[in-house]
């Protein structure tokens, strides 16, 4: 079953068409990696599915729930999406987890509270079980002893692992990563990539935007190459990284040294 289905998605900022008619799906347990040059619309795509941006066309469904029920034309003759009821949107929201490039941890909460606050506040879990779950997640991330620390006391890599734990604490059906290692020093990217590979092994459904080509090739079940707001090519890592016939894909991959692949 498809966890995520995107059909004919369109998004523009003013006159700038950032996403034009993109369709794809992600199946349960699948790891989809999205690559593409800067400005190709990768972040915007994730943000549309997360409702951090409003879409201009197309449909999105998460675990069978339709996010957009239809379109209506407003007074100025512009097509506007009609989003589903708050209950459905809330359900979708909780099914989709998000890990940001610059972590966005809550600086005034301890590491533990960063992870437990949403389960307690949003899911109404009792504090006891939320704490237990959080400690288990921290243990998995190798950060058990940092539970009482504040984000400012952690390295970038540790902060990013906390933010992954925070997203996982809500038991999402699918987890998005938008360049999870781009804000980190090169020597810290490894620890994050390891955690993501671990999640892939556990069959967590994930969509990962990254510029780490070697990692993409390693972790992906399927790769989408985006450029100029469209999907140029998609396929298995072998098809994209080794045997592509597409000139644009070739040109893009050339920028990464052979040793990267």
């Amino acid at each position: 079953m498809a966890v995520l289905e995107v059909r004919h998605l369109c998004k523009r900022f003013g006159e700038n068409q950032v996403i034009s008619d993109i369709s794809f799906e992600v199946n349960k347990g699948e790891v989809l990696v999205i690559i593409g040059p800067s400005g190709s619309g990768k972040s915007t795509l994730l943000r549309c599915i997360n409702r951090l941006e409003k879409v201009d066309g197309g449909t999105i469904s998460v675990c069978g729930d339709e996010m957009i029920t239809g379109y209506e034309t407003d007074k100025k003759g512009i097509q506007r999406p009609v989003y589903a009821s708050p209950e459905v949107l809330r359900k979708i929201r909780l099914n989709v987890g998000m890990v940001f490039q610059n972590f966005n941890l809550f600086p005034h909460f301890s590491v533990l509270k960063n992870i437990t606050d949403a389960p307690v506040c949003v899911l109404k879990q009792d504090i006891q079980s939320a704490n237990e779950k959080a400690m288990a997640l921290l243990e998995k991330m190798g950060l058990k002893e940092k539970a009482q620390a504040y984000p400012c006391e952690l390295s970038g890599g540790q902060q990013q692992r906390v933010s992954i734990a925070r997203a996982l604490a809500l038991n999402p059906q699918i987890l998005f990563f938008d360049e999870p290692t781009s804000a980190l020093d090169p020597e810290l990217t490894g620890e994050i990539l390891k955690v993501i590979k671990e999640l892939a092994k556990e069959k967590m459904t994930m969509v990962i935007v990254t510029h780490e080509m070697a990692f993409a090739r390693d972790v992906a079940d399927r790769v989408i190459f985006m450029d100029g707001g469209v999907i140029v090519e998609q396929g298995t890592p072998a098809e994209i990284f080794s045997n592509t016939q597409n000139e644009r894909t070739k040109a893009f991959l050339k920028r990464f040294s052979e040793s990267d692949l």
């Binding site: 987890g97 610059n102 966005n104 925070r166 809500l170």
Partner: peptide, 16 residues
């Protein structure tokens, strides 16, 4: 802005 976005993605209501 990232603080608002993180909260939104985690399902906090506007007032929370």
């Amino acid at each position: 802005l990232g603080q608002y976005e993180a909260a939104q993605v985690l399902g906090y209501t506007k007032s929370q």
